[in-house]
Design a protein around this nucleic acid. Structure first.
Length: 797
DNA sequence: ATTCAGGCAGTTTTT
DNA sequence: CTGCCTGAAT
């Protein structure tokens, strides 16, 4: 033990956890396996640093990806220590960037009241821009431009930094440039901009950077494997690595992550940041947390064996003291319909055994799969809850209300003007709006100013609208947040509008809920830690006398040095309204309806990350679905799918169920799927097959290429066995695929193609002249081929 | 201004 | 088979 009198904080930690918590103030990487007590280590580390007097609350920055994680960290921390969490910077990347930019808005070139665009807002801003500049939306779909712009920002690239090799990119960069100008003009920033702009201020402003580098003695990052390029670069601004040529910052970065749970490469996450961190920061302390406190060993063995099929891992193996537990149950269903029914039956059984419904989860790869499951649960009368979908602040009626509120703060927010200029309808048609946009463009001003200018013709509808906004702004002066929102809901006519709508009751309720949300925001958050520019003394003043440590042992002197004040002492604070709007943009709220009931949980595997359940059902384990066909073009894609499966498996505490279906209705067509190759990567002795071998597919996709499990020769059962078709109440009954040319192809069949060589049929879709086959070629990857065109010759096994 | 038909795409998602 | 969006028709 490190101490004669071990801190009570360390009680109950295993040796690795304790070692991580008590590491010296140097850079460290913690490889934290699933269920290894990662959050506990992070929070205990902070508590330990504070309690041992190594740092005051003001010297700590802890970064997470989700608000939920940040909140949990604060909750756990306050339970451990009577510490004022407000002095610390604990929050999401974006929340902290927002906090930073509010304090440094001038250095960042932003108005104090800048608004935040969420993904929807960003897309509509891009659409608007494209219309205005006559961008061909066939060649440049707005979605794709959004993806491009966000991608550039995630890589830290401004338009001028993008390497242009072709005309298409050149045009995209032009649009990116125009988009930036538009945002700047309107005083709005998107999510990527929050990060990029903060990064640039730190990079280009030496006093500011030095200030924060000296202030934050300890920087802790959760889910480090999910950081993108920009986020890593941003972190480096707070703690220059030794080789960067900048003076050493003398602080310590404590990064926690798990390369095996990296499932967000598709949105820019770079697992490579972990290795880069070790190299660039010359990390000397790496600790692996491999003791798992969650799952029984059958489940854990399955996870370990599966992930062992990935190459390029940092290397980690979970172990548990828990017993073997139940075997992993595997079921092969004739159809997706039967699969769902089986899941429900098993759930009923678990319920009879006394398991709470909320402890059971159904996980799937893609959202489209929830429907069958929902139907089955509904028919069985079993309460369920689907994660995903619109969150509270993303609902249309809420966004309308927020748009009015934003216009009180910032009338130049054209996005918001366009959203509500004619909502509720007030006789401002598309062509009036267009005219207004022309005027605004011609005079280079915002829609609001253009409208105010034209209002010479009093009595026009647009004039009324501008007057309405002005009246609202005037009347709400000095009001509480609650009163402001109530007034806006009333004067805008939103509530009245939805009251008259036939199906508008829910929307009216949501609008009322918005008032409640605002009230509780003011109450518990005191306007929200993230949202409010902190009192200047907190950012700028010397931290030696940080008062936020009541209850701490203050006998040891703190090491913080006095800091030069770099925050402009303007005494600015954000209004409650502005703070609430920020809150709405950065925390879109719950997406779960009816949270109270004890209900079965349905969600994608992605959404399940970080959660755990007594019983987990992973459904749709089929080639093309899981692993998903779009991800299988390269090895990286397949490995990410495998990590996804690893995440799914490690959610389960006691029971794990795996299922796949021979046929599945997808895009309105019946598809015949092979079972997932992942079955072949699980330990046979941890599994219990609930389907007799004769009723199973003989081969799985990966099987013939090597290492396949053995039921070969059992004869692939035709997927269209009449027996179960009669049982399924689905019409019309799927027909056996009858490809042209009379070639007898079925899933699993080895084939030869003149150009692509040898491959294997993954799936067959459609019939007659439209029939297509999905073939995985040994050398050329997975392709869809029209059977009427492609020459496929069956090859005998 | 509202509604309806037709076209089209359809992994994963937090901020 | 959906859900979403657009364009045309009332």
């Amino acid at each position: 033990m490190l101490f004669e009198d071990p801190s009570p904080l360390l009680v109950g930690l295993n040796p690795e956890q304790a070692a991580a918590v008590t590491l010296p103030a140097e850079h460290a990487l913690i490889l934290a396996g699933a269920g290894s007590g990662k959050t506990r280590v992070l929070t205990t580390r902070i508590a330990w640093l504070l309690q041992s007097g190594q740092v005051s609350p003001g010297g700590i920055m802890a970064v997470t990806f989700t608000n939920k994680a940040a909140k949990e960290m604060m909750t756990r921390l306050t339970a451990m220590l009577p510490v004022n969490v407000r002095g610390m910077w604990i929050g999401t990347f974006h929340g902290l960037c927002n906090r930073f930019l509010r304090a440094h808005h001038q250095a960042a070139g932003l108005p104090a009241t800048f608004q935040i665009l969420d993904t929807q807002d960003q897309l509509s801003a891009i659409k608007r821009l494209c219309k205005q500049h006559n961008v061909d939306d066939e060649r440049f779909p707005p979605k794709q431009l959004q993806w491009f712009i966000s991608g550039c920002k995630e890589d830290g690239q401004r338009p001028r930094d993008v390497v242009v090799r072709d005309d298409e990119t050149r045009r995209k960069v032009e649009i990116y440039q125009l988009y930036e100008e538009q945002c700047q003009r309107e005083g709005v920033v998107d999510f990527g901009e929050l990060m990029l702009r903060s990064y640039e201020v730190l990079r280009d402003n030496d006093p500011v950077r030095v200030h924060y580098q000296r202030r934050f003695r300890h920087i802790l990052i959760d889910e480090f494997q999910d950081t993108n390029r920009l986020q890593y670069a941003w972190l480096k601004m707070f703690s220059a690595p030794p080789l960067e040529g900048l003076p050493p910052s003398g602080n310590a970065v404590f990064a926690v992550g798990d390369d095996d749970q990296s499932i967000y490469a598709f949105r820019g996450a770079r697992v490579g940041n972990m290795a880069d961190f070790v190299r660039e920061f010359q990390v000397r302390h790496q600790i692996k947390l491999e003791q798992n406190y969650r799952s029984c060993s059958n489940i854990l063995n399955a996870a370990n064996e599966l992930i062992g099929h990935n190459s390029r891992r940092l290397g980690k193996n979970l172990r548990t003291d828990a017993g073997a537990g139940e075997p992993v149950r595997v079921y092969e269903a004739p159809s997706d319909f039967d699969e769902a029914r089986w899941v429900v039956d098993e759930m009923k059984q678990l319920e009879r055994e006394g398991m709470a419904r909320s402890e059971m989860a159904v996980l799937y790869r893609s959202n489209a799969q929830s429907r069958v499951m929902e139907t089955a649960l509904f028919n069985a009368g079993m309460p369920y809850r689907v994660y995903g979908g619109l969150r509270f602040f993303e609902r249309a009626e809420i966004k309308h209300a927020l748009a009015y509120l934003r216009l009180l703060e910032n009338p130049h927010d054209d996005n918001s003007v366009l959203r509500v200029v004619n909502f509720p309808p007030r006789g401002i048609g598309a062509r009036s709006v267009e005219q207004l946009q022309d005027v605004a463009r011609a005079s280079g001003c915002s829609l609001h100013d253009a409208a105010s200018g034209v209002t010479g013709r009093a009595g026009t509808a647009i004039g009324h609208f501008v007057a309405l906004l002005d009246v609202m702004r005037e009347k709400t002066q000095g009001m509480t947040l609650k009163e402001i929102i109530e007034l806006v809901l009333d004067r805008s006519g939103l509530v009245e509008h939805f009251r008259q709508e036939r199906e508008g009751e829910d929307r009216v309720e949501n609008l009322e809920e918005l008032v409640n949300a605002a009230e509780s925001f003011v109450m518990q958050e005191g306007f929200g830690r993230d949202a409010v520019a902190l009192p200047v003394d907190e950012l700028g003043a010397p931290l030696t006398q940080s008062p936020a440590s009541q209850g701490l042992d203050m006998s040891q002197p703190l090491v913080d040095e006095p800091l030069p004040a770099v925050v402009p002492d303007t005494g600015e604070t954000l209004s409650p309204l502005a703070a609430f709007l920020t809150h709405a943009a950065l925390e879109s709220g719950d997406n779960q309806a009816q949270a109270g009931q004890d209900a079965v949980q349905l969600m994608t595997v992605h959404a399940a990350k970080g959660l755990e359940f007594h019983a987990v059902f992973i459904t749709g384990l089929e080639e093309g679905l899981f692993p998903h066909e779009n991800a299988m073009s390269d090895r990286d894609g397949l490995e990410e799918e495998r990590r996804l499966m690893y995440v799914a498996i490690t959610r389960a505490r006691q029971r794990l169920y795996l299922a796949h279906a021979q046929t599945r209705l997808l895009h309105g067509q019946t598809r015949y799927n092979l079972r997932s190759r992942f079955f072949d990567e699980l330990p046979e002795d941890a599994l219990k097959w609930l389907t007799p071998p004769q009723a199973r597919q003989g081969l799985s996709a990966g099987g013939w290429q090597g290492g396949g499990r053995g039921a070969a020769g059992a004869g692939a059962q035709p997927a269209w066995t009449p027996g179960w078709l009669a049982a399924a109440d689905r019409a019309p009954a799927p027909k056996a695929p009858e490809p042209d040319r009379g070639v007898d192809l079925r899933a699993g069949q080895k084939v030869f193609h003149n150009k692509f060589g040898e491959g294997k049929v993954l799936a067959i879709e459609g019939a007659g002249p439209d029939a297509r086959a999905q073939v995985s070629f040994n050398r050329h990857g997975v392709k869809w081929l029209a059977l009427s065109v492609a020459k496929l010759t069956p090859v005998d096994a």
